[in-house]
Each structure stands twice: as structure tokens, then as C-alpha cells.
């Protein structure tokens, strides 16, 4: 073929091709990407209509959510199926790198909120917390922090047990992680409700409230996504869809969960303690 006819170039060509028919290496078509993009578009439009006070059809919101969730799940299933006929170590390595880079960009989004908080506090505000803002109660969030940190450990033990072949143990530790995550969210919800009901602390009364609710809320959203992720992993463990070689979702969920944990430690320090 043409590649050989220009062998003056630096690369020498492999003598034995990995696969007899090169067309088998062309990537498979998939409808999930375009459907997911459509779903995100529909969901964003529905969100926009609701947020700006239009009477958006509840059907549109529902359609948006379904159009996001179904393609996302279908996509994940396709990847899991495709990996069964690819080099598992290699696909694991590239998926892991991609996921870590994605988390880096997530960290940068949180970074913009932290930068906002620290700039206002040290470069702009005369008093902090501003006059009229409540003194934040720290004991309950501190308990939540401890539980979330603990959940990082329970997840690690779950991962460890699964690699060691102890599936029942792995499932129990995973369940413990999910419960700790839910309790953390419940504590946050209670904290929000308390601040709103008794301290009349809202997101629109001042920059401190805006930062508090957005930063904890955006983090809480990540905890919710992380919990969905954990439930998916539990379900796949339950159905025996993972083994010692194929368990990328277990690893990805672990990175995600640790990420959510680490962000919270910074958040707790900056918002509640500093």
C-alpha cells in the first residue's frame, strides 16, 4: 500500500499487523453522542424557561432529563461492551487519564468560585462576614465533614475488597459509602433549612449568601452525581458486570468521590472556618 512506497521517511513499518483486516479498526458509529447533545440542549432550554418565569411545560423538563439520562447510560453500556474486545489495560489507562483531566477542569470551575470568595474577602470587603450575615454554625457541618471523609475511606476499602475478590465485603463497604453520602446531604439540607428559616439567610441578600449557597449547592450537586455514580457501580457489582480486569466504573467513581471529598475539605475550611 501507499504507506510502504514512501519508506524514505523515518518510521519503519511493523512487519506483523495486529489485525488482518484494517477496516476492523475503524471506530463504530453511535447515535448516543448526538442524542446526548440534543438532551442537554432541551434540558438547558427548559431550565432557562423555568428560571426566567415562563410556564415551561413540565413535559419539556422531563423530556430533557430523559434525553440526558438514557443516552448517558446507553453510552456507558456501549463502552463497557466494546472494552470486552479491546486490550483491557490500554483502555483502562486512557479512560483513567481522560477522567482525571476531566476532574482537573471541574477543579478549575470550583477554583473560579474560590477565587471569587477569597478576592471579595481579602481584597474588597471591609468586614467579613459582612454586617447582617449570620455567624455560621460549624459543629453540624463539621460532623458532615467527618462523615464525608470517612466515606472516602469506606469506598477505598470497598475497592480494595473487590480487587481482592471479596465481592460481598466490597458491596457492604460500598453501601456504607452511599449511606454516608446521603447522611452528608441530609446534614447539608438541614443546615440550609435552618439558616433560611431562623437566620433569614438567603442567596440574594448579599454576596456572602450568594457565595455560601452557590458553593455549597454546586458541591451538593456533585455529591448527588457522585451518589448516582455509586448506585450505578453497586448495581453493576450486584449483576456481576465487573471483575478484576474490567472495573473502570469502580475506579472512576472512586476518583470522583475523592474529588468531591477534597473539594469539600477546602470548602469547609474557607467558608466555615476561615
Amino acid at each position: 500500500m501507499a504507506t510502504e512506497s514512501h519508506s524514505a521517511a523515518a518510521p519503519a513499518h511493523a512487519a506483523a499487523a495486529a489485525h488482518a483486516d484494517p477496516s476492523a479498526h475503524a471506530p463504530q458509529p453511535s447515535a448516543w453522542p448526538i442524542l446526548l447533545a440534543l438532551g442537554i440542549g432541551v434540558f438547558a432550554t427548559a431550565f432557562f424557561l423555568v428560571a426566567t418565569g415562563f410556564n415551561a411545560l413540565p413535559l419539556l423538563v422531563l423530556a430533557g432529563i430523559l434525553l440526558v439520562l438514557i443516552p448517558a447510560l446507553g453510552w456507558a453500556t456501549t463502552i463497557a461492551a466494546e472494552r470486552r474486545h479491546q486490550d483491557p489495560n490500554y483502555t483502562f489507562a486512557i479512560l483513567r487519564r481522560g477522567f482525571l483531566y476531566f476532574l482537573l477542569s471541574e477543579g478549575a470551575i470550583f477554583g473560579s468560585f474560590f477565587a471569587h470568595n477569597l478576592y471579595i474577602r481579602f481584597g474588597h470587603a471591609t468586614t467579613w462576614p459582612p454586617l447582617g450575615a449570620p455567624r455560621l454554625e460549624t459543629s453540624l457541618p463539621a460532623i458532615g465533614t467527618l462523615l464525608l471523609v470517612l466515606s472516602s475511606f469506606t469506598y477505598h476499602w470497598s475497592h480494595h475488597a473487590f480487587i481482592g475478590g471479596k465481592r460481598a465485603l466490597a458491596k457492604n463497604w460500598l453501601l456504607a459509602t452511599i449511606i454516608l453520602g446521603v447522611v452528608f446531604l441530609a446534614i447539608q439540607g438541614y443546615d440550609w433549612g435552618f439558616l433560611k428559616a431562623f437566620d433569614k439567610f438567603t442567596y440574594s441578600q448579599g454576596v456572602f449568601g450568594s457565595q455560601f449557597y452557590w458553593m455549597t449547592g454546586f458541591h451538593g450537586l456533585h455529591v448527588c452525581v457522585g451518589l448516582l455514580f455509586l448506585v450505578l457501580v453497586y448495581w453493576r457489582m450486584e449483576r456481576g458486570e465487573m471483575n478484576q480486569t474490567y472495573h473502570f466504573s469502580l475506579t472512576a467513581a472512586e476518583y470522583y468521590w475523592h474529588f468531591v471529598d477534597i473539594v469539600w475539605i477546602f470548602l469547609f475550611f474557607v467558608i466555615y472556618l476561615l
Partner: peptide, 14 residues
């Protein structure tokens, strides 16, 4: 949309 104060000087934003 939500009338938060991130960049609103009246609410302490910059």
C-alpha cells in the same frame, strides 16, 4: 436570574 450579588456592588459584590 436569581438576583445574587456576585458582581453587584450594592450587595457587596465587585
Amino acid at each position: 436570574i436569581f438576583h445574587t450579588g456576585f458582581f453587584q456592588p450594592g450587595l457587596g459584590g465587585d
